[in-house]
Design a protein around this nucleic acid. Structure first.
Lengths: 353, 353
DNA sequence: CTGAAAGCGCTAACAG
DNA sequence: CTGTTAGCGCTTTCAG
């Protein structure tokens, strides 16, 4: 294989336009001090020759790499891909991230990191050393992994922490979990439900707690008690089934359940069916992931749609800005929406059953 | 923002190990002429310092970029992402491609290219100039886009053409479409079906034609006629509905239909239902995409599973090898499998109805 | 088998 | 406002 060198370099452009390399560089990088006549002349040569700067060379001379790295948990991601159950959060991240990157001449690269392992630092460190990304996007539960955030901060790489409100280095971002949980709860209250159960996610996800807060607040605000209507799962199906079982075993079981993940919602659906309950007649159900799968159940599930694409897009923008302005201290929040489908209905008549 | 330089470079390692840069370079690249004692000493320093070579620098000095580029059609990909209907071929490509890349120290980067437009060359040329990928993976319908393959060949970049058997530059690869169509048809013949309809994809996809061949061959081989049982769609829902309608309008309609995409299969399901046909009792149905969605219909669809992940993985391997060995001339084929679910059943009794 | 020198394409820093 | 100089971190010659 022949050595593949840049076919047309900054030198060719400089020669063609009859200027110095530096001037061409200034035009490429849209720097101020260039006379517009000069700029046009150089641009003409660039267009004529079809010149595109080499990212590697740009990176080498100490400037940007034009790469944003999205760090995802290796095992979780692969498990989702292999399961082929339609979970599309990676796609949504790509949708928001890639397109926004492209608008600014950047690329987004996904990196799978084995975050359970204690050599996260080595793995992530290697990725950073190899790629020298201009910014990193962290998703839960990595967003609050001190090993990761510490490393990034130490190396001075701007990063966004999606699903984290902690203070400290990096841009904290949330998808409005508290608000979203409130939204779901209020929808049920409006439908006349008074006993609304909540199946939370694991405690090591901060967003699990925010959602609990949102639910509790909405309940209180509606003059309802949430006592005893709470269970916790791990986002997975089995844990959801167990939690749903406990809630439905109560002396006075809930007439509606909010589950913090699609899998736990699906499990709840199945458990309820197993007990002869009709959804939504006997039990209303809201899922906290609007993944494709919840549209194909019978009935389709009312769900909280998290703005994954929009949040990732915003993260990219903030990361790119970060090298100019110092990022804001306050957490950035993009709120989700409630998508109403067939799994929620008027609460069963009070005296009935 | 401080200039971010490589924290530990080849120089540090060389100094630490008390050897020249060159020797370190040789160890990194696993070159032959290094005494094993030397090698170990250098490796020890590398490990101690946590050194990882900078891809940008490696690329700069004329060697590999360690980047494999997967080119996808911009509009199609974005449409799928936005639709959120669980189509997961991008994920499957990532699954196969990223993991295999990682095994070899490469990264896979997705690039969305507006392939309809006639400035494909500029777009793709820019991506290549900027990234200098070591290999490119093309998916249909780009695999046979002469503008694209020509550009790649001209620049001497190894590339794989998935879904193409054409001769010429680049590694031709298929997912066994002919074989897969035969498989589906044979399954139906075994179930006693004699009139098996086929809804093909658009003619500008070579694989559409291969599937037709497979179906026709299996029919002939089973002593059956395929005359008049053929329709063509564009892979989309509406075209599928139209095609299904025509097939079911025949004087002697088919008792089974094979659709070349999940959307066309779904459309067929709906059209059949609309006519009061029960699936699979009155009509058996096979989808040609085993995307998550076909598992959630009632009944779940029997489908051809295309080895997207495996093919992408193989493509990556072949591309990486390509810079050593000259790639084989013959097309590389990985065949799909039939996943039997509830949409196929024994043919309705002959005299009945 | 190992080392020294040159340069990849680009930008930062400094002159003019 | 524009040009010159000196590297970035690595690999490729080519000597030893």
């Amino acid at each position: 294989m022949a050595r593949r060198r840049q076919s047309v370099t900054i030198k060719h452009v400089a020669a063609d336009a009859g200027v110095s390399l530096q001037t061409v560089s200034r035009v490429i990088n849209n720097e101020p001090n260039v006379r517009s006549a000069m700029k046009e002349r150089v641009q003409a040569s660039i267009d004529k020759l079809g010149y595109v700067p080499s990212i590697a060379a740009q990176r080498m001379s100490g400037s940007r790499s034009y790469i944003i790295l999205a760090i995802n948990d290796r095992d979780l991601t692969i498990a989702d891909w292999r399961a082929r159950e339609g979970r599309d959060w990676v796609d949504q991240m790509l949708l928001g991230g890639m397109l926004t990157c492209a608008e600014h001449g950047y690329r987004m690269l996904i990196e799978l990191v084995d975050t359970h392992n204690d050599h996260v630092e080595r793995e992530l460190g290697a990725a950073i050393a190899a790629l020298q990304p201009d910014g990193v996007i962290l998703t839960p539960p990595n967003s609050e992994n001190a090993l990761i955030t510490g490393l990034l901060a130490e190396r001075g790489i701007p990063f966004a922490r999606i699903g984290s409100m902690q203070e400290g280095p990096g841009i904290a971002m949330t998808m409005g979990d508290k608000h979203n949980a409130r939204l779901a709860t209020e929808h049920l209250i409006e439908l006349g439900h008074e006993r609304i159960g909540f199946i939370a996610g694991p405690a090591d996800f901060s967003l699990s707690e925010w959602r609990i807060e949102g639910w509790q607040q909405a309940m209180k605000h509606g003059g309802l008690s949430h006592e005893g209507l709470f269970e916790r799962g791990d986002f997975g199906f089995d844990s959801g089934a167990q939690a749903a079982g406990k809630l439905l075993d109560l002396d006075r079981p809930p007439t509606a359940i909010i589950a913090s993940s699609d899998q736990m919602a699906l499990a709840t659906l199945e458990v309820a069916r197993g007990r002869g309950l009709d959804i939504p007649k006997d039990l209303s159900l809201i899922s906290f992931d609007n993944s494709p799968i919840v549209r194909f159940t019978q009935p389709a599930l009312t769900a909280i749609d998290q703005p994954i694409a929009a949040t990732t897009a915003r993260a990219v923008e903030l990361l790119i800005e970060a090298r100019k302005r110092k990022p804001a201290e306050r957490p950035v929040t993009l709120e989700g929406e409630l998508v109403v489908r067939g799994s929620t209905a008027q609460a069963p008549a009070l005296g009935a059953g």
